[in-house]
């Protein structure tokens, strides 16, 4: 069993240069997407099948002062990966190292993973008709290289390594930031069984567009079936049994023959 890997994103060091975004497009040969001006320099507006990572821009007013916050977003490589759970085609697998990899050849483009991902990190590609997402450059890793985005980051905001070590570094960084009065936290340590992208955030997760308590998409499955099956019982009784049951009179026709015109 190989050690689990993780990407480490320290938002306090990100300058929003979007070098990672470009590096990802280049290495993975992803097409450009047509976009319009959305009121911010954030572009494209969302992750999709042809844009696997992007920097999210957040403007936040803090006691009269405007803060510009940046967060590189991409697939989080969840341990409890909703995309993997819902995929009927078995196109998504989790590797021993904790990466969640989507096999393009198996994907039929049903978009179930797209609606199931709590981070909106996977999308349908116009180019291929399949869903695509970040795969943490697993082919580069296998060949002893870092993911393309990590290599491109000029400020050291994005790095990569064994998850245990990354987590230790993240916690260290949090205590440094806290000492200087920043409300810093680690995101991803325990969320969804542990993410393989760990963030150091200097504000609440929601400010950065992250769910505070992400849920795996299949969490409500049994409860939903339970209620539906109780409903089946109720409906079978009323109206079906109540209205259609034979109330003593013998049926006036033999069973199994053709059509009875009147009932």
């Amino acid at each position: 069993m190989m050690a689990e890997l993780a990407m480490f994103i320290d938002v306090s060091k990100c300058t929003g240069c979007r070098g990672c975004q470009v590096a990802c497009k280049q290495w993975n040969e992803l097409p450009a997407v047509k976009t319009g001006f959305s009121g911010s320099y954030e572009n494209p507006p969302r992750i999709g099948g042809d844009t696997w990572t992007k920097v999210r821009f957040v403007e936040k007013e803090d006691s009269g002062k405007m803060r510009f916050l940046f967060r590189k977003e991409q697939c989080m490589h969840c341990t409890e990966a909703s995309c993997e759970a819902v995929c009927a085609a078995g196109a998504i697998r989790k590797t021993d190292q904790g990466l969640v990899v989507l096999n393009d050849d198996r994907c039929v483009g049903c978009k179930n993973c797209v609606v199931a991902c709590p981070f909106h990190a996977v999308g349908l590609s116009e180019e291929t008709g399949s869903s695509r997402k970040c795969r943490l450059c697993y082919e580069r890793i296998e060949n002893g290289m870092e993911p393309a985005c990590v290599k491109a980051c000029p400020t050291g905001a994005v790095s990569f390594g064994e998850r245990d070590q990354v987590l230790a570094r993240a916690k260290q960084r949090v205590s440094v930031l806290r000492d200087s009065g920043v409300n810093a936290t680690v995101y991803g340590e325990n969320e969804l069984g542990g993410l393989h992208v760990l963030y150091v955030l200097d504000d609440e997760p929601e400010v950065y567009g992250l769910p505070a308590h992400p849920r795996v998409a299949t969490a409500g499955l049994l409860n939903n079936w339970l209620h539906a099956l109780i409903g089946v019982g109720v409906v079978a009784f009323a109206p079906f049994w109540l209205i259609f049951r034979e109330r003593g009179k013998a049926p006036d026709k033999s069973v199994g023959t053709g059509v009875d015109g009147n009932a």
Binding site: S82, A116, A217, T218, N223, N224, L226, H227, A228, G231
Partner: peptide, 17 residues
């Protein structure tokens, strides 16, 4: 629909019913 990330679909156990 309930086994997704959309709050309108997954926040109650009644959609199947």
């Amino acid at each position: 629909l309930a086994s997704t990330a959309a709050p309108l679909w997954n926040s109650t156990p009644y959609l199947g019913l």
